[in-house]
Amino acid sequence: MVATSPAIRLVRLRKVYGQRTAVDDLSLEVPRGCFFGFLGPNGAGKTTTIRMMIGLAAPTAGEIELLGYRLPEQAVAAKQRIGLVPEESLLFDRLTGAEFLEFSGRMYGLARNVARERTRELLELFELDQEGGKLIADYSKGMRKRLAMAAALIHRPELFLLDEPFEGVDAVGARLMKDILLDQIRRGATVFLTSHVLEVVERLCQRVAILHEGRLVMEREVGDLRDGGESLEDVFVRVVGGAKTAAGLDWL
């Protein structure tokens, strides 16, 4: 909508489930064209944040603006421009890979012939063309992630929300996905990525934020980390707490 607005703007975002605060006072701005890493230990609130951004969860307080569109008022317009790879599978198991991609394309407003043509090309790109006629239920975890990635690309979105997209994907598939994402960055799209594989984040992302117990505890350029001589893993462990050892468990 407004080309100068940031790709993502979260203002004092908060999500409370009963007694527990999943996301607490999170303010974040991701500029357009940025490859952004959103990190945190398990249960830190990363997935809840993404769920709020795609409308699967309503914030308890705070504001969300994606590509200049305010949520939830302009959610349909925002979603039209978002490509999503969720952590949990939102695929339809009883469709084939080809059918699901065509369905996704049509849901994003592509004409049927365009959706079909892009489906064919994406299946080929992700080396799923041999499996295009198989039911998604018969796909391996890696194949499901590749299919979800293809579905996220089919409508040429401006913003990618990717929750653990490389989980279960083999090295070749992961390399392909990374190359595609870097291409998307070059054409001006924005990528918002969560991953536990810190080496990948360090290599791909320009900027990272670390969430711990629902609160933003660090946000920094990846280049600054390198200048400081620390790896992202070192910073991460330092920020979210020290590593435990199994030294006390004699039987182990």
């Binding site: 469709l95 059918e99 369905f103 049509r106 407003g109 039911l135």
Partner: peptide, 18 residues
């Protein structure tokens, strides 16, 4: 609408696949 058409089509394919 195109979205409703896509949902109907996907559900039809699902039933056929089942």
């Amino acid at each position: 609408t195109p979205a409703v058409g896509a949902i109907v089509w996907a559900q039809w394919r699902t039933l056929l696949n089942v």
